[in-house]
Every structure is written in C-alpha cells, then in structure tokens.
Nucleic acid binder design. Structure first.
Lengths: 348, 348
DNA sequence: CTGTTAGCGCCTTCAG
DNA sequence: CTGAAGGCGCTAACAG
C-alpha cells in the first residue's frame, strides 16, 4: 500500500486541536485568567484590554469548551435529556418542540434520542444521558418497568414523565386528560343513540391506552350499559394494523355504528378503511368516528368525525417547566406532581 | 422566614455531587485506574477483580462522566449538533428521526435546537454547539448568509446542509430533487391541457422555494409557454396564509384551473380553501392540485391531487451518513458533495 | 496485573 | 486590575 506520509504524521485523520484559552492568551499577550474573565462578562478587566481580547477571540474563532467548564464543581452541564418513543410521530415532534422552546430559553440544550418502544434501549439511553451529565430528564416511557429509572433517582437527576406514566415510579408527570376525553367522546356517541361502538386501541402496556379504555368503559358504565367486547380491539401499532382491524370490523354482519380510535395513527387507519369501504360500495352509511389526538386534515376527513384534540407542544412546555422547577430547586421537597392537560372535543 | 438549617448546610439547592471513579475505587478497595480499566472493557484486569468492581459500580449506580472523559486529547465528544428550522413540522421531524437513527447507531447522541427561521438565533446556536464540542453539524439553514458557518469551518467541524443549501457555503448537502419534481408535476398539468396554473410558494430566500419555482418555470419554457405571473404567489408562511391566498385566487374572474403548491403546509391551506369553496357552492369544478411534500391523509384529500412525495427520514439518514464520513476521515479531502434525492409522483 | 503521575480546558481562590 | 497555583473526572504513559 502507499505510504501515509502525504497525509500527515499520524494515522488518525488530521484534525486541528480546538483552540483553548491558552491560545487566546498567547495571541492577545495576556494570561489565560484574563481571557477567562473576558469570557465570563469582562468584569474586573480594563475595558481596552477586554476589547482587545474580544477581538482576538473573534478573529481566531474561539469557542469556550463548555464540557471542560462544566467539569468544575457546582457548574451545570446545561444539558437536558429527552427520550421519546418515536420522533417521527408528529405528535411527539410537537412535544419535543415545546420542550425545546422552554428549555432553550434558559440557554440549555436538549439531547434527543428515540427508544423505538424498546425497553432495553430505553435503559441504555438513560444511562448514556446520565453519563453525559444531563441536569434533568424528560421521558415518554416505554413500558411499566420502573427499575429503569432507579439510576436517575439515585443520581438525583430530576425526571418528568411525559404523555405516559409508570405506575411504580414516583415522578412528576404531565398527561393528557385521557380518561375524561375518552369518557366525554364516548358519552356523546351513546347519547346520539349509538350502542355498537368499537374501541380501537394500542398496546395496553402503554398507560395512555389503558386510560383511554378506562374512559370508554366508564362512559358505558355511567350510561348503565356495557360495551360489546367483540368490538374492543387492542394492540394496534400503526395505521396499517388499524386499517386492517377496521376493515375486519366492517366486514362483520353486525358492524359497529360508531368507532372510538385511541390515537391519531389508529384514526388515520380507521378512516382509510371506512373511506375505502364507502368508495367501493360495500358500506352505505359510514360509522361515526371519535378520534383521540388530532392530525393534519382532521377538518377534511371524508366521514363524520369527532376529534379529541389537545396540544402536544403545550404538553412539552409544561413538562419542561416542571423539570426546570426541580432543577433550580424551587420545587425542592415537593411530592410528585401530576398535571392532566385538558382536551377539546371538536366536531367535523 | 424559617431557618434553612433543616435543608442542609449551604444555600444552594441540595444536590448530591455525582459519583466519581475515586468513589468507586474507594468502595471497591482498588485504585481509580483499575476502575477506569474496568469501565473501558476490563482488559488487563483480573477477572475476579473486574467482576467485583462491576458489582460496586452497579450497586452504587455510577455512570462515567463523558464530559470529563472527552476532555482528554484525541477523545471525541460523541455529540452531533442538529439545527432545524422547526421540529414541530412533521417533515423536519422525519428528518431528525433519520439523523438520530444513523447517528445513534454509532453510539453518538444528537443535540437538537430550533432556529425558528431566525438567522441571528442560528448563528448563536451554532456557536453554542461548537462550545459543546460537537463532532459535526447537520443544519437546515435559515437564509443565504454563509458567514454564519465560518466559525464551524475554522474549527474544522464537519457540516452537512440538509434540505436547503446556502450558495456561499461549500459544504456537503442533501437536497430533494426539487427542480425535477416541480418540473415533472408541472409538465403533467400542462400535458393535461392546463394553462392557467397557479404557483403558491414560500419565501424566495429559502433555496427549496427557489428551486421549485425554477422547475415550475422550466416546465413552461420546455413547453414553449410562460406562466401567468398574476398566478404566482410567493412568501406564504403557513397553512393560514396559503388558505387566504388560494381563496383570493379562486375569487378572481379568471381563476386558475390547476395549482402548484410548493410545500405541505401550503398544500393543506390550499386544499382547505378549495374544499370550502366547493362546499359552499361558489366553486363548481375544483382546480387540480399538485403538491410538493406529502402529508397524512394525502390519499383522502377531497379534491384531485398529485403529490410530489419524498422521504424525510431518508434525507436525514443520508445527511447523517455524509457527516459521519467526514467525521471519521473516510471522506477526507473530498470536494463538497451534493446529493439530490429522488421524488415520486403519486396521483390521488 | 495493578498503581502512580501528569495533564486535558477551565475557573475559584488567593497574591500581587 | 492582573496573574499564579491548584483541582474538577478521567485515562495515557510509565513504573512496579
């Protein structure tokens, strides 16, 4: 093979070492300490000198190493870890947006990772975040295994659960008022005369799924009846599985006259199935759909639709504010807080 | 006020100092170096000792401080900076998802921030990221001011532009094949006999907007005609402004028979306007719409629709791979690369 | 196989 | 107002 001598003296890819305070000090002919002072606001530095140093910093393009800085005792890392099940989901993207907005305004930055609904990965990423000295964590938890959060608790890193809870973890949490939303929407369908109401739900290990199902059943109970269990479908993962489930329900002789879809992915799948069945003539009157979570175009859906709407970025903002209050000590000693954000029923 | 003595000895919020290798070393009755070796895989450590140390680490819930670790020369921070104009936009959420997938697989994590289309904020965040020692940057740039990236270049931090370019910046870039996509969609409309075709575009300072407009005009030129400039509307920001613009176009006596919408937000606004006009009877035959970018439910839109579809997460993955190739030196010395990802025309 | 020394970039403490 | 010393957590390089 060719010699490596043209590429430099060592085998590792040539990468200029980052500038340090020393480099600036040398170039500005001052001590590193003076540079440090300038970086921290220039207090106690002769104005002329300060400007000179600032000029050198700008000329050389120096940036203070925040990692080294945060090494000193008492210094914060300025990092918040955000663990989401799937950023590709527009709903969680909104949550992240809200978190970033509030956290970013404090000058802190967010580390974002996706668990992909994988519990082992969640544990691993939490550990990674702790190693990176995050000051706090906002997590959309994968399942119900509270053990995964033990490390964070032991390290005194504040934790806020977002959108879902974990029964065994006593931490601040921000949820949507799932139970009420599902209850209200279901009640409206019952009052409209529907009795055969299907429930299309996701995995029961997800707390939102449980809570929405509870609201659904609660509405029936309060109405003095019970749902037809044959119409309760759980474990749906995405639009495709939801569409299949809906199609199968529509194919039964005693098809539902109304449907409750437990989240936006499920709603979209259900609407596809209903619209297709209507289009190919196999279905005359489409069932009424009540859909948890909104989505682009909910207002133009081709079937009668009630949406249980709520604002994901607001959820993110609230979660971030709760976290910050733990980080700055202003909520010290307070018991775990649970916020349930309101939902809005919208009829299209 | 009550005395603070119950809360600890100092005024700052009580926060246990993080565990260090020394703590583990003391507890395991070994030297810090042995702990370090165990943390790095346990090479050259007596198996029994290694297990003992690992046990102590697990018992105490210790996590190696990655920031301190990366302080040593030659060590990487394991951080990649991602700057997005708006994570709330499902399209960019998909891009972030793709980036995270590829970057995360290398054990690195992403710092994510939103520029909100603000150039000053972009500069500030880039500087912040450099201070946090990111190994690389993936940026959806705000405008055309290449100066903002000078600091990154000077610090030898690899940069990949995603989704948009900046003319004055010679960096790797991943774009959608905007020109071709717009050209093809427009050509189809022309071939279908449409002549009065409106163009609903975003800000021209955004390179995608320029490129899509170029494809639109190019298709007319190749067809031997020119678009009606009265039907070219630029500067649309969101669904609301797009809906207004579309409504106004529909209100003109010589309304367009077809519409090109330059992105998904604009498409949704346009569809709303068209659907409303159809519903209230003020419009008999809706114009054909060609929409750049897809969105939930494009397949169920209430009007004739062609979508110029492409995969945001693929764009993210490609951008991340390009960045990694610069970071690990495998693309050392290569000229800036431009990848244009294919689009797919889909008719609904 | 294990331990000691030294220094990464920065800033608090203390001298001047 | 400015500078020198020391140490944050970690790990190469070098003893032993």
């Amino acid at each position: 093979m060719e010699s490596a001598e043209d590429q430099g003296l060592d085998a590792t890819p040539t990468r200029r070492a980052a500038l340090t305070v020393k480099d600036i000090a040398r170039a500005a002919e001052v001590s590193p300490m003076t540079v440090s002072r300038v970086l921290s606001g220039g207090k106690n530095v002769r104005p002329a000198l300060r400007e000179h140093v600032e000029q050198v910093i700008a000329d050389l393009g120096y940036h203070r190493n925040e990692n080294a800085r945060s090494l000193r005792p008492g210094q914060r890392s300025g990092l918040v870890g955000v663990l989401i099940t799937n950023i590709g989901n527009p709903y969680y993207a909104g949550v992240v947006q809200g978190i970033e907005q509030v956290v970013g305004a404090t000058g802190r930055r967010i580390l974002v990772a996706t668990t992909n609904e994988d519990g082992d990965l969640e544990r691993q990423l939490l550990s990674d975040f702790l190693g990176r000295q995050v000051e706090g964590l906002i997590v959309v938890p994968v399942g119900q295994d509270g053990e995964r959060f033990a490390a964070a608790r032991r390290n005194d890193v504040p934790l806020v659960l977002a959108s879902r809870t974990v029964a065994s973890v006593a931490a601040d949490a921000v949820l949507i008022d799932d139970v009420r939303g599902a209850h209200e929407a279901t009640t409206l369908m019952l009052e409209a005369g529907h009795r055969r109401i299907a429930f299309l739900g996701n995995k029961v290990s997800v707390s939102t799924g449980q809570r929405r199902l509870r609201g659904f059943r609660g509405a029936f109970a309060d109405h003095g009846s019970v749902p037809d269990e044959d119409l309760v479908v759980l474990g749906l993962q995405d639009t495709a599985t939801a569409e299949t489930a809906m199609r199968e329900l529509l194919g039964t002789p005693d098809r539902p006259t109304a449907v409750f879809a437990a989240n936006n992915r499920i709603s979209i799948g259900a609407i596809r199935a209903i619209a297709k069945a209507t289009a190919d003539g196999s279905l005359e009157t489409p069932p009424h759909l009540s859909a948890f979570d909104s989505f682009d175009f909910a207002d133009m859906a081709p079937i009668p639709l009630s949406v249980i709407d709520h604002d994901p970025s607001e959820l993110g903002r609230v979660a971030a504010r709760m976290l910050l209050s733990r980080m700055d000590g202003s909520a010290d000693g307070a018991a775990p807080r649970l916020v349930e954000l309101p939902v809005h029923l919208v009829h299209h």
